[in-house]
Simulated scan of single mutants.
Amino acid sequence: MDVHQLELFLAVMDSPSMTRAAEKVHLSPGAVSLQLHNLAEELHTELFVRRGKHLIPTPAALRLAERAKELVKLMGHIQQEFQSDITKDTRAFHFATGVTTLIYQLGRPLRQLRSRFPNAEIRVTVGVTEEMVAGLHERRFDLALITLPVPEDNLQIIPLFDEELLVVRPSLKKTASSHIGTVRPAELGSVPFLLYPKRSNVRRAIDEIFKEIGVQPNVRMEADDTEAIKRLVESGFGYSILPEHALRGRSHFFQKFRVEGHRLTRKLALAMVSTESPRKLTEAIANFLRDALTEQAQSSPPQALRKAASKS
């Protein structure tokens, strides 16, 4: 019996099925089943009984789980004490982020990250905040860049910055990407909108914005992809509200606006599982990305222009 077997055993105890447990520990169901069989034989007891597609823990398994949690926790403390050199951490590091943030904000920080941690095997997964939070709890991700708010139970949240959101509407001719006008809330009450799906945290932030400005939006279409929404707006299908970072660059067939008297934002943060024995590499990468992203946000063109205006 070894700690690895106990970790697999606890993964099965905490999962609704063998398949989900195997996904959590990145092994095949057959490999997990074999390890559980060997553990049960060594302890001369039965750990699970099958009921349909589900594994039901026996009283012996419940007793073992109590002891196993204590031992795995102790091993975590020992590893933390003696494995402080992150350059020797050879386990894959799983980072999750949203597609819009990846495209428009993470290019330079990720290049810097790979240069800073050349020996780390960094794997990136793209998803929505809800999927990323679930992945953190299931230990599929070490770190995630999410949109707040989220339930913070068992999570360590590292706030980054507020990203500005802008109203965009179709234009018959190309407009300069640097120009941002102003629109009154009353002008948004009857126009058609193309927004992110309701399941996304960005959409929740946008819905809160509509409540704040007293507008009931006329939502005609929904789409997950920012680029798809931009193309639909340019094609004249309606207005939208999108992250400012995604609207920079070349000129477009849409106009950009801030809402008069209101600043529209979404809150970005890094999140990791809260544990007494955090992985040193996770802490190091989280601190690195926090500094890189915060510095990048502070030096972005809109921020720089606002700072210059305040000094004049």
Results as ranks from 00 to 15, higher is better:
110 L>T: 03
3 V>A: 11
52 G>V: 02
121 E>T: 09
36 L>G: 03
221 M>P: 02
18 M>E: 15
100 T>A: 13
213 I>M: 15
248 R>V: 13
98 G>N: 05
188 L>T: 04
198 K>A: 14
250 R>G: 15
311 K>G: 08
78 I>T: 03
103 I>V: 14
185 P>R: 03
115 S>M: 07
292 A>P: 08
298 Q>N: 09
65 A>L: 05
69 K>I: 07
135 G>F: 06
76 G>I: 13
201 N>V: 06
2 D>F: 00
129 T>Y: 08
42 E>C: 06
216 Q>K: 12
113 L>G: 03
199 R>S: 14
59 P>C: 03
279 R>E: 15
230 K>I: 14
91 R>F: 05
184 R>C: 05
63 R>E: 15
133 V>E: 08
266 R>F: 00
69 K>W: 08
30 G>S: 15
188 L>D: 11
242 L>S: 04
222 E>K: 04
309 A>P: 06
303 Q>T: 01
129 T>N: 04
197 P>F: 07
198 K>T: 15
20 R>C: 02
230 K>L: 12
118 P>W: 03
140 R>A: 05
155 L>P: 13
40 A>R: 06
236 G>C: 12
258 R>A: 12
192 P>I: 04
10 L>G: 02
105 Q>A: 14
57 P>A: 09
235 S>Y: 07
60 A>Y: 07
30 G>F: 10
211 K>D: 15
199 R>L: 13
261 G>Q: 10
195 L>N: 00
234 E>V: 09
152 E>S: 14
130 E>N: 02
75 M>I: 12
138 E>I: 07
184 R>E: 13
68 A>H: 06
14 D>L: 02
34 L>Q: 15
33 S>H: 13
69 K>C: 04
195 L>E: 11
37 H>S: 11
126 V>S: 13
233 V>I: 07
160 L>Q: 11
155 L>Q: 05
277 S>I: 05
307 K>A: 08
265 T>W: 03
131 E>H: 12
297 A>W: 07
292 A>I: 08
98 G>P: 01
214 G>C: 09
99 V>L: 11
282 T>L: 10
53 K>F: 03
306 R>A: 15
39 L>K: 01
312 S>N: 13
267 K>I: 10
122 I>W: 10
197 P>Y: 05
145 L>F: 05
71 L>V: 14
128 V>E: 13
268 L>R: 12
239 Y>N: 10
63 R>G: 07
187 E>R: 10
8 L>F: 11
13 M>E: 08
221 M>C: 01
22 A>Y: 10
115 S>E: 07
300 S>M: 07
295 E>F: 00
175 T>I: 12
244 E>C: 01
1 M>K: 06
78 I>G: 01
254 F>E: 04
54 H>K: 15
121 E>G: 01
242 L>A: 11
33 S>F: 08
47 L>G: 03
270 L>F: 10
180 I>R: 06
150 V>P: 07
213 I>S: 02
283 E>A: 11
248 R>W: 05
283 E>V: 15
74 L>K: 13
229 I>V: 11
310 S>Q: 14
139 R>W: 00
77 H>L: 14
110 L>D: 10
117 F>L: 09
215 V>D: 00
165 L>A: 00
253 F>I: 06
41 E>T: 12
75 M>R: 02
253 F>A: 13
155 L>Y: 14
10 L>Q: 04
91 R>N: 05
93 F>M: 09
29 P>F: 14
108 R>E: 14
219 V>C: 00
88 K>M: 10
177 S>K: 01
